[in-house]
């Protein structure tokens, strides 16, 4: 079974107060030197069939229309396989 991973991150220009709150907690925990933290979402889609180009295109569409809100977020789509198949490249960011 193949796994397709969709990572969704807020666009750089969108304020990420959650990431900032995490970053501000770091010195208290003894972590120094981390200049910025951005928090995102990771979706792991286990695909029963082989991940064809067509299947990947549909997953990209899913990411574009549902998993990410491209007004504020960008996403990447990649195939994660046991044999270490090549990444499927980055999805478009609107």
């Amino acid at each position: 079974m193949a796994r397709v991973v969709v990572d969704v991150m807020l666009k750089p220009e969108i304020l990420d107060p959650q990431g900032q709150a995490v970053q501000r907690a770091l010195p208290r925990l003894g972590f120094e030197g981390i200049a910025d933290v951005r928090q995102g979402k990771r979706f792991e889609l286990d695909v029963a069939e082989p991940v064809t180009d067509e299947a990947l295109a549909r997953i990209r569409e899913l990411a574009e229309t549902f998993l990410a809100n491209t007004v504020i977020e960008h996403y990447t789509v990649r195939v994660e396989e046991a044999e270490g198949a090549e990444g499927a490249g980055a999805g478009a960011a609107a």
Partner: peptide
């Protein structure tokens, strides 16, 4: 309405959390 794109933009987490 924003998610539907009937209205532009988006609502995000309050800046002060």
């Amino acid at each position: 309405l924003c998610e539907s794109h009937l209205l532009p933009g988006a609502l995000t987490r309050n800046d002060h959390l």
